[in-house]
C-alpha cells in the first residue's frame, strides 16, 4: 500500500519534526542552565553546569521587588477575568437567546472590537485613562479589557448549542431569567468558561505594552514590566545570569502550571480556537 516514496517522506518528515522540537526546547534549557551557573561561568560551555548555584535567584529577588510584581500581576489577571467573564456571559446570553430591537446593529458594533483590539489603541486610551485620573493604578491596566468581543462570541456560540427546550420548560416552571442563566446556561458552558479563564488569563499574565504605559510605581507594575525594567542594561553592562534568573521568576508559574495541566491548557486553547 505504501510506496517507497511515501516511506522516504515519512522518515524524513519524522526526523524533521523531532529535530525541530529540539530547536524549540533548547532556548529554554539553555536559559535554565545559565540561571543556575555562577555569574562568571555564563560564558563557559553550552550546558556547563559544573557549579550549580542559587545565587542568581537570590540576587534577582533582592534587586527587584518580584514579590510585589507577583501580587500586582495576580490582582490584574483576576480582576480582568472576573469582570470580563460577567460582562461576556450577560452579553452572550442576550445575543444568543433574547430578541430586542436593533440586535443586529449592536452585533455589528461588537464585531468592531474583534477588528480593532485594545492593544493597538494605546495612544488614545492613554488620554482617556489620563482624563479619568487613573494613571498608575491597577484598575487602569484592567479597564480596557473588561469587555471582550472574543469572549462574547465564544460564549454566544456555546449558549446557542443549549437546547431551547430547556429554557421553555424552565419558564413553564416559573423560573426567572436570572435563574435560567445561572442554573442552566452557566453550568453548561463550563468547558468554555474554563477555556476562557486559561486563555484570557495567560494572555494578561503575559501582557506588556499597555501596563508599561499606564503604570509607574513598583506596586502597580506587573511581572512583565518589572522584568523589562530589570533587564534594561545601563552604564554597567549586562549581567546575563541574574537577568535570566529574574526572567525565570516571570515565566515559571505559567510554565509549571502548563506542564502540570498540559491537557487542559491545550484543550482550552483548542476550544477557544473553534469558532
Amino acid at each position: 500500500m505504501n510506496t517507497t516514496k511515501d516511506k522516504i517522506i515519512h522518515v524524513f518528515s519524522t526526523a524533521c519534526i523531532i529535530l525541530l522540537s529540539f530547536v524549540w526546547i533548547i532556548p529554554l534549557m539553555w536559559s535554565i542552565s545559565i540561571a543556575f551557573r555562577p555569574a562568571n561561568d555564563v560564558y563557559k560551555g553550552l550546558f556547563d553546569i559544573s557549579g550549580i548555584t542559587f545565587e542568581n535567584f537570590v540576587n534577582a529577588w533582592n534587586e527587584a521587588p518580584f514579590g510585589s510584581y507577583y501580587i500586582a500581576t495576580i490582582i490584574i489577571v483576576v480582576g480582568i477575568l472576573c469582570v470580563q467573564l460577567v460582562t461576556s456571559v450577560l452579553a452572550a446570553y442576550a445575543f444568543a437567546r433574547l430578541e430586542f430591537l436593533g440586535k443586529n446593529v449592536l452585533f455589528v458594533l461588537f464585531i468592531v472590537q474583534l477588528m480593532i483590539p485594545a492593544d493597538v489603541l494605546i495612544a488614545p486610551n492613554y488620554e482617556i485613562i489620563s482624563d479619568f485620573g487613573l494613571i498608575d493604578t491597577k484598575i487602569a491596566v484592567m479597564l480596557p479589557y473588561f469587555a471582550s468581543a472574543f469572549s462574547i462570541f465564544l460564549l454566544r456560540q456555546t449558549f446557542k448549542q443549549v437546547p431551547i427546550e430547556f429554557d421553555e420548560s424552565a419558564k413553564m416552571e416559573g423560573a426567572s431569567m436570572w435563574n435560567i442563566l445561572t442554573k442552566i446556561y452557566i453550568p453548561m458552558a463550563k468547558p468554555t468558561l474554563t477555556a476562557l479563564t486559561l486563555t484570557v488569563g495567560s494572555f494578561h499574565w503575559n501582557n506588556y505594552l499597555w501596563p508599561l504605559i499606564v503604570t509607574n510605581s513598583e506596586e502597580n507594575r506587573p511581572l512583565t514590566v518589572g522584568l523589562s525594567v530589570f533587564s534594561a542594561s545601563s552604564e554597567s553592562g549586562a549581567n546575563w545570569a541574574t537577568v535570566t534568573a529574574g526572567m525565570l521568576f516571570v515565566i515559571l508559574p505559567l510554565l509549571i502550571a502548563f506542564i502540570i495541566f498540559q491537557r487542559q491548557f491545550i484543550n482550552s486553547f483548542m476550544h477557544a480556537g473553534l469558532k
Binding site: 533582592n62 534587586e63 525594567v229 534594561a232 545601563s234 554597567s236 553592562g237 549586562a238 549581567n239 541574574t242
Partner: peptide, 11 residues
C-alpha cells in the same frame, strides 16, 4: 531613578 543591572550600583 534609572536602574543599572550591575546590581551593586542599584543597591
Amino acid at each position: 531613578y534609572p536602574v543599572s543591572v550591575g546590581g551593586a550600583i542599584a543597591e
